[in-house]
Nucleic acid binder design. Structure first.
Lengths: 175, 175
DNA sequence: GCAAATTAATGATTTATTCAAG
DNA sequence: CTTGAATAAATCATTAATTTGC
Protein backbone atom coordinates (compact mmCIF):
# COMPACT_ATOMS: atom_id res chain seq x y z
CA UNK A 1 0.00 0.00 0.00
CA UNK A 2 1.66 3.13 -1.07
CA UNK A 3 1.37 6.06 1.17
CA UNK A 4 0.39 8.03 -1.83
CA UNK A 5 -1.68 11.10 -1.83
CA UNK A 6 -3.77 10.46 0.85
CA UNK A 7 -7.03 9.62 1.92
CA UNK A 8 -8.19 10.91 5.11
CA UNK A 9 -5.09 11.54 7.10
CA UNK A 10 -3.05 14.49 7.95
CA UNK A 11 -2.84 16.49 4.78
CA UNK A 12 -0.62 19.28 5.87
CA UNK A 13 0.44 19.67 2.34
CA UNK A 14 -0.18 18.18 -1.02
CA UNK A 15 1.58 14.97 -1.65
CA UNK A 16 1.48 14.12 -5.31
CA UNK A 17 0.95 10.63 -6.57
CA UNK A 18 3.42 9.19 -9.00
CA UNK A 19 0.87 9.57 -11.76
CA UNK A 20 0.45 13.22 -11.04
CA UNK A 21 4.16 13.76 -10.98
CA UNK A 22 4.49 11.86 -14.21
CA UNK A 23 2.04 14.07 -16.01
CA UNK A 24 3.48 17.25 -14.60
CA UNK A 25 6.95 16.16 -15.51
CA UNK A 26 5.94 15.32 -19.03
CA UNK A 27 4.25 18.65 -19.42
CA UNK A 28 7.35 20.30 -18.15
CA UNK A 29 9.64 18.43 -20.45
CA UNK A 30 7.39 19.25 -23.33
CA UNK A 31 8.20 22.84 -22.75
CA UNK A 32 5.57 24.07 -20.39
CA UNK A 33 7.08 26.26 -17.75
CA UNK A 34 4.63 28.85 -16.60
CA UNK A 35 1.12 27.64 -17.25
CA UNK A 36 -1.65 30.16 -17.41
CA UNK A 37 -4.49 30.16 -14.98
CA UNK A 38 -6.63 28.24 -17.37
CA UNK A 39 -3.99 25.69 -18.02
CA UNK A 40 -3.42 25.28 -14.34
CA UNK A 41 -7.05 24.71 -13.71
CA UNK A 42 -7.32 22.17 -16.45
CA UNK A 43 -4.26 20.33 -15.39
CA UNK A 44 -5.51 20.35 -11.87
CA UNK A 45 -8.91 19.12 -12.87
CA UNK A 46 -7.54 16.21 -14.72
CA UNK A 47 -4.90 15.35 -12.23
CA UNK A 48 -7.60 15.12 -9.65
CA UNK A 49 -8.43 11.83 -11.29
CA UNK A 50 -5.30 10.50 -9.70
CA UNK A 51 -5.81 11.93 -6.31
CA UNK A 52 -6.45 14.97 -4.22
CA UNK A 53 -5.02 18.08 -5.73
CA UNK A 54 -5.65 21.78 -5.97
CA UNK A 55 -4.83 24.35 -8.59
CA UNK A 56 -2.29 26.00 -6.40
CA UNK A 57 -0.43 22.75 -6.14
CA UNK A 58 0.03 22.76 -9.87
CA UNK A 59 1.10 26.36 -9.81
CA UNK A 60 3.65 25.75 -7.11
CA UNK A 61 4.87 22.63 -8.75
CA UNK A 62 5.82 24.47 -11.88
CA UNK A 63 7.37 27.30 -9.94
CA UNK A 64 9.53 24.99 -7.95
CA UNK A 65 10.38 22.64 -10.72
CA UNK A 66 11.49 25.42 -12.95
CA UNK A 67 13.56 27.08 -10.30
CA UNK A 68 15.17 23.88 -9.16
CA UNK A 69 15.96 22.69 -12.59
CA UNK A 70 18.02 25.77 -12.94
CA UNK A 71 19.91 25.57 -9.74
CA UNK A 72 20.58 21.93 -10.13
CA UNK A 73 21.98 22.11 -13.57
CA UNK A 74 24.54 24.62 -12.66
CA UNK A 75 28.16 24.94 -13.32
CA UNK A 76 29.02 24.06 -16.79
CA UNK A 77 32.10 25.64 -18.02
CA UNK A 78 32.64 27.45 -21.21
CA UNK A 79 32.10 31.00 -22.23
CA UNK A 80 28.88 31.65 -20.44
CA UNK A 81 27.93 34.73 -22.32
CA UNK A 82 25.04 35.09 -20.05
CA UNK A 83 23.91 38.34 -21.36
CA UNK A 84 20.73 37.70 -19.63
CA UNK A 85 19.40 41.03 -18.71
CA UNK A 86 18.16 40.19 -15.33
CA UNK A 87 21.21 38.24 -14.47
CA UNK A 88 19.00 35.46 -13.37
CA UNK A 89 20.93 33.03 -15.38
CA UNK A 90 22.75 31.66 -12.51
CA UNK A 91 21.15 31.83 -9.19
CA UNK A 92 24.17 33.30 -7.68
CA UNK A 93 24.13 36.97 -8.26
CA UNK A 94 21.14 39.12 -8.01
CA UNK A 95 20.88 42.71 -7.11
CA UNK A 96 20.81 43.06 -3.38
CA UNK A 97 18.34 45.80 -2.91
CA UNK A 98 19.79 48.42 -5.00
CA UNK A 99 19.02 49.16 -8.53
CA UNK A 100 21.61 50.06 -10.99
CA UNK A 101 19.93 52.64 -13.08
CA UNK A 102 21.04 56.06 -13.86
CA UNK A 103 18.58 58.46 -15.29
CA UNK A 104 20.20 59.95 -18.25
CA UNK A 105 17.64 61.93 -20.07
CA UNK A 106 19.93 63.28 -22.67
CA UNK A 107 17.66 64.33 -25.38
CA UNK A 108 15.18 67.01 -24.99
CA UNK A 109 15.10 69.11 -28.06
CA UNK A 110 18.65 69.49 -29.17
CA UNK A 111 20.18 69.11 -25.86
CA UNK A 112 21.81 65.98 -26.90
CA UNK A 113 24.98 66.20 -25.02
CA UNK A 114 27.32 65.50 -27.86
CA UNK A 115 25.88 68.31 -29.83
CA UNK A 116 26.33 70.69 -27.04
CA UNK A 117 29.54 72.63 -27.21
CA UNK A 118 29.47 73.38 -23.55
CA UNK A 119 30.68 71.18 -20.85
CA UNK A 120 28.48 70.80 -17.89
CA UNK A 121 29.76 70.85 -14.41
CA UNK A 122 30.93 67.33 -14.45
CA UNK A 123 33.80 68.21 -12.30
CA UNK A 124 32.70 66.41 -9.25
CA UNK A 125 31.53 63.46 -11.19
CA UNK A 126 34.69 63.08 -13.11
CA UNK A 127 36.67 63.02 -9.95
CA UNK A 128 34.97 59.87 -9.13
CA UNK A 129 36.50 58.18 -12.07
CA UNK A 130 40.24 57.84 -12.08
CA UNK A 131 40.38 57.06 -15.73
CA UNK A 132 43.46 56.08 -17.51
CA UNK A 133 43.70 57.82 -20.77
CA UNK A 134 46.39 55.68 -22.20
CA UNK A 135 45.82 52.04 -22.34
CA UNK A 136 47.95 49.61 -24.17
CA UNK A 137 46.67 46.79 -26.24
CA UNK A 138 47.52 44.55 -23.40
CA UNK A 139 45.19 46.33 -21.09
CA UNK A 140 42.00 46.06 -22.97
CA UNK A 141 40.08 44.86 -20.07
CA UNK A 142 37.56 46.97 -18.39
CA UNK A 143 36.50 46.52 -14.89
CA UNK A 144 33.21 48.09 -14.21
CA UNK A 145 32.23 48.46 -10.72
CA UNK A 146 28.90 49.37 -9.35
CA UNK A 147 30.02 50.95 -6.17
CA UNK A 148 26.91 50.45 -4.19
CA UNK A 149 26.35 47.05 -5.60
CA UNK A 150 29.52 45.90 -4.08
CA UNK A 151 30.43 43.77 -6.98
CA UNK A 152 32.90 44.22 -9.71
CA UNK A 153 32.48 43.12 -13.23
CA UNK A 154 35.54 42.37 -15.19
CA UNK A 155 34.70 42.73 -18.77
CA UNK A 156 37.32 41.25 -20.93
CA UNK A 157 36.44 42.15 -24.43
CA UNK A 158 39.28 40.24 -25.92
CA UNK A 159 38.84 37.10 -23.98
CA UNK A 160 42.49 37.12 -23.14
CA UNK A 161 44.21 37.60 -19.89
CA UNK A 162 44.61 41.24 -19.13
CA UNK A 163 44.71 43.44 -16.12
CA UNK A 164 41.58 45.43 -15.49
CA UNK A 165 41.30 48.93 -16.74
CA UNK A 166 39.51 50.25 -13.76
CA UNK A 167 36.87 52.24 -15.46
CA UNK A 168 34.45 52.92 -12.74
CA UNK A 169 30.97 53.86 -13.58
CA UNK A 170 29.00 55.54 -10.94
CA UNK A 171 25.70 53.93 -11.32
CA UNK A 172 22.95 55.78 -9.66
CA UNK A 173 21.59 53.47 -7.17
CA UNK A 174 18.27 53.82 -5.60
CA UNK A 175 17.68 52.63 -2.13
CA UNK B 1 42.94 41.79 -40.03
CA UNK B 2 39.34 41.90 -39.35
CA UNK B 3 37.20 44.29 -41.23
CA UNK B 4 36.21 45.53 -37.88
CA UNK B 5 35.55 49.05 -37.03
CA UNK B 6 37.40 50.60 -39.56
CA UNK B 7 40.53 51.82 -40.53
CA UNK B 8 40.38 54.45 -43.07
CA UNK B 9 37.57 53.58 -45.35
CA UNK B 10 34.02 54.58 -45.76
CA UNK B 11 32.81 55.32 -42.33
CA UNK B 12 29.32 56.42 -43.10
CA UNK B 13 28.31 55.18 -39.78
CA UNK B 14 29.72 53.64 -36.73
CA UNK B 15 30.54 50.02 -37.04
CA UNK B 16 31.27 48.59 -33.63
CA UNK B 17 34.01 46.08 -33.11
CA UNK B 18 33.23 42.89 -31.33
CA UNK B 19 35.10 44.16 -28.32
CA UNK B 20 32.99 47.25 -28.18
CA UNK B 21 29.83 45.26 -28.50
CA UNK B 22 31.04 42.92 -25.86
CA UNK B 23 31.61 45.68 -23.37
CA UNK B 24 28.37 47.42 -24.17
CA UNK B 25 26.50 44.19 -23.88
CA UNK B 26 28.09 43.40 -20.59
CA UNK B 27 27.26 46.81 -19.26
CA UNK B 28 23.72 46.33 -20.43
CA UNK B 29 23.36 42.95 -18.87
CA UNK B 30 24.83 44.25 -15.68
CA UNK B 31 21.85 46.51 -15.45
CA UNK B 32 22.83 49.67 -17.20
CA UNK B 33 20.02 50.91 -19.40
CA UNK B 34 20.15 54.64 -19.70
CA UNK B 35 23.65 55.87 -19.03
CA UNK B 36 24.13 59.43 -17.99
CA UNK B 37 26.05 61.83 -20.05
CA UNK B 38 29.10 61.26 -18.00
CA UNK B 39 28.83 57.57 -18.21
CA UNK B 40 28.41 57.77 -21.92
CA UNK B 41 31.48 59.85 -22.28
CA UNK B 42 33.51 57.53 -20.20
CA UNK B 43 32.34 54.48 -21.95
CA UNK B 44 33.02 56.11 -25.23
CA UNK B 45 36.45 57.18 -24.19
CA UNK B 46 37.42 53.75 -23.19
CA UNK B 47 35.81 51.98 -26.05
CA UNK B 48 37.83 54.15 -28.35
CA UNK B 49 40.69 51.93 -27.41
CA UNK B 50 39.06 49.27 -29.52
CA UNK B 51 38.32 51.45 -32.47
CA UNK B 52 36.70 54.56 -33.73
CA UNK B 53 33.68 55.55 -31.74
CA UNK B 54 31.81 58.61 -30.65
CA UNK B 55 29.73 59.33 -27.62
CA UNK B 56 26.56 59.46 -29.60
CA UNK B 57 27.22 55.95 -30.76
CA UNK B 58 27.12 54.80 -27.21
CA UNK B 59 24.01 56.78 -26.55
CA UNK B 60 22.24 55.34 -29.55
CA UNK B 61 23.44 51.88 -28.81
CA UNK B 62 21.75 51.91 -25.44
CA UNK B 63 18.61 53.45 -26.82
CA UNK B 64 18.34 50.86 -29.49
CA UNK B 65 19.33 47.94 -27.39
CA UNK B 66 16.81 48.81 -24.75
CA UNK B 67 14.04 49.39 -27.21
CA UNK B 68 14.76 46.23 -29.13
CA UNK B 69 14.86 44.19 -26.03
CA UNK B 70 11.40 45.43 -25.29
CA UNK B 71 10.04 44.71 -28.69
CA UNK B 72 11.50 41.29 -28.67
CA UNK B 73 9.76 40.65 -25.50
CA UNK B 74 6.46 41.79 -26.68
CA UNK B 75 6.43 39.14 -29.29
CA UNK B 76 7.14 36.38 -26.98
CA UNK B 77 4.39 35.92 -24.60
CA UNK B 78 2.89 33.06 -22.89
CA UNK B 79 3.92 30.39 -20.49
CA UNK B 80 6.80 28.60 -22.04
CA UNK B 81 8.96 31.51 -21.32
CA UNK B 82 12.20 29.77 -21.13
CA UNK B 83 12.32 26.76 -23.32
CA UNK B 84 16.04 26.90 -23.55
CA UNK B 85 16.49 25.54 -20.13
CA UNK B 86 17.95 27.78 -17.57
CA UNK B 87 17.32 31.05 -19.15
CA UNK B 88 20.93 31.84 -19.39
CA UNK B 89 21.30 30.85 -22.92
CA UNK B 90 19.84 33.60 -24.95
CA UNK B 91 21.32 36.98 -24.88
CA UNK B 92 18.45 39.24 -24.41
CA UNK B 93 15.28 37.91 -23.15
CA UNK B 94 13.44 38.45 -20.04
CA UNK B 95 10.16 37.11 -19.10
CA UNK B 96 7.15 38.43 -20.78
CA UNK B 97 5.50 40.64 -18.32
CA UNK B 98 2.27 40.06 -20.01
CA UNK B 99 -0.53 37.95 -18.72
CA UNK B 100 -0.29 34.91 -16.62
CA UNK B 101 -1.41 35.26 -13.17
CA UNK B 102 -1.17 33.88 -9.75
CA UNK B 103 1.43 35.98 -8.21
CA UNK B 104 3.75 34.59 -5.68
CA UNK B 105 2.36 37.04 -3.23
CA UNK B 106 -0.57 35.39 -1.65
CA UNK B 107 -0.54 37.32 1.51
CA UNK B 108 -2.86 40.02 0.34
CA UNK B 109 -6.23 38.96 1.46
CA UNK B 110 -7.54 36.05 -0.46
CA UNK B 111 -7.01 37.32 -3.88
CA UNK B 112 -5.18 34.31 -5.05
CA UNK B 113 -7.05 32.87 -7.94
CA UNK B 114 -7.39 29.41 -6.60
CA UNK B 115 -9.02 30.69 -3.50
CA UNK B 116 -11.53 32.60 -5.48
CA UNK B 117 -14.90 30.95 -5.37
CA UNK B 118 -16.02 32.66 -8.51
CA UNK B 119 -15.39 31.45 -11.94
CA UNK B 120 -14.02 33.89 -14.34
CA UNK B 121 -15.32 34.22 -17.82
CA UNK B 122 -13.44 31.25 -19.05
CA UNK B 123 -16.30 30.34 -21.25
CA UNK B 124 -14.48 30.82 -24.43
CA UNK B 125 -11.42 29.17 -23.12
CA UNK B 126 -13.18 26.19 -21.80
CA UNK B 127 -14.80 25.57 -25.09
CA UNK B 128 -11.43 24.95 -26.44
CA UNK B 129 -11.09 21.99 -24.22
CA UNK B 130 -13.54 19.19 -24.68
CA UNK B 131 -12.94 17.74 -21.31
CA UNK B 132 -14.41 14.55 -20.14
CA UNK B 133 -15.57 14.74 -16.65
CA UNK B 134 -15.89 11.08 -16.03
CA UNK B 135 -12.93 8.97 -16.71
CA UNK B 136 -12.57 5.39 -15.73
CA UNK B 137 -9.49 3.93 -14.26
CA UNK B 138 -8.72 2.55 -17.63
CA UNK B 139 -8.60 5.94 -19.18
CA UNK B 140 -6.07 7.60 -17.05
CA UNK B 141 -4.03 8.80 -19.90
CA UNK B 142 -3.80 12.35 -20.85
CA UNK B 143 -2.87 13.61 -24.20
CA UNK B 144 -1.61 17.09 -24.06
CA UNK B 145 -1.25 18.93 -27.20
CA UNK B 146 0.56 22.11 -27.78
CA UNK B 147 -1.48 23.52 -30.54
CA UNK B 148 1.07 25.78 -31.99
CA UNK B 149 3.79 23.29 -31.63
CA UNK B 150 1.94 20.88 -33.72
CA UNK B 151 2.85 17.99 -31.60
CA UNK B 152 0.87 15.91 -29.24
CA UNK B 153 2.11 14.35 -26.12
CA UNK B 154 0.49 11.25 -24.84
CA UNK B 155 1.07 11.13 -21.22
CA UNK B 156 0.36 7.81 -19.78
CA UNK B 157 0.61 8.16 -16.11
CA UNK B 158 -0.08 4.55 -15.41
CA UNK B 159 2.32 3.14 -17.88
CA UNK B 160 -0.38 0.94 -19.28
CA UNK B 161 -2.13 1.09 -22.55
CA UNK B 162 -4.98 3.51 -22.43
CA UNK B 163 -6.79 5.78 -24.76
CA UNK B 164 -5.88 9.43 -24.43
CA UNK B 165 -8.02 11.74 -22.44
CA UNK B 166 -7.76 14.50 -24.91
CA UNK B 167 -6.97 17.31 -22.59
CA UNK B 168 -5.75 19.96 -24.87
CA UNK B 169 -3.78 22.73 -23.46
CA UNK B 170 -3.43 25.79 -25.53
CA UNK B 171 0.14 26.60 -24.95
CA UNK B 172 1.34 29.91 -26.00
CA UNK B 173 4.41 29.12 -27.88
CA UNK B 174 7.13 31.40 -28.68
CA UNK B 175 8.13 31.31 -32.21
C1' DG C 1 12.81 -5.49 11.94
C1' DC C 2 11.20 -1.18 14.07
C1' DA C 3 11.12 3.45 15.42
C1' DA C 4 13.49 7.57 16.83
C1' DA C 5 16.95 10.62 14.74
C1' DT C 6 18.84 12.71 10.86
C1' DT C 7 19.01 14.14 6.22
C1' DA C 8 17.25 14.90 1.56
C1' DA C 9 13.25 16.50 -1.22
C1' DT C 10 10.16 19.37 -2.39
C1' DG C 11 5.66 21.84 -1.27
C1' DA C 12 4.31 26.58 0.18
C1' DT C 13 5.46 31.48 1.27
C1' DT C 14 7.79 35.57 1.25
C1' DT C 15 10.72 38.96 -0.82
C1' DA C 16 12.99 41.39 -4.67
C1' DT C 17 13.20 42.66 -9.35
C1' DT C 18 11.87 44.05 -13.79
C1' DC C 19 9.22 46.27 -17.39
C1' DA C 20 5.73 49.19 -18.42
C1' DA C 21 1.63 52.01 -17.80
C1' DG C 22 -0.17 56.11 -15.59
C1' DC D 1 8.31 58.92 -10.17
C1' DT D 2 4.81 55.84 -8.75
C1' DT D 3 2.39 51.79 -9.08
C1' DG D 4 0.66 47.35 -11.13
C1' DA D 5 1.50 42.89 -13.04
C1' DA D 6 4.10 38.99 -13.08
C1' DT D 7 7.41 36.38 -11.90
C1' DA D 8 12.08 34.37 -10.12
C1' DA D 9 14.91 33.93 -6.15
C1' DA D 10 15.25 32.94 -1.54
C1' DT D 11 13.50 30.95 2.28
C1' DC D 12 10.54 28.49 5.40
C1' DA D 13 8.34 24.20 6.58
C1' DT D 14 6.75 19.39 6.04
C1' DT D 15 7.02 15.14 4.48
C1' DA D 16 9.66 10.98 2.67
C1' DA D 17 13.97 8.70 2.86
C1' DT D 18 17.67 6.99 5.14
C1' DT D 19 20.43 5.83 8.98
C1' DT D 20 21.23 4.12 13.39
C1' DG D 21 20.62 1.91 18.04
C1' DC D 22 18.61 -1.57 19.97
Amino acid sequence: MSMEARVGAKCGRWNPTVEQVKVLTDLFSSGLRTPTTDQIQMISTHLSAFGKIESKNVFYWFQNHKARERHHKKRRRGPPDDVDGDGAGDGDHHKPRTRCFPAGRAKDKQEVFWQRPEIKETTETLELFPLKSSISEEEKVIAVRGELCGRTLYLDATGRDHPPLDLRLSFNYVE
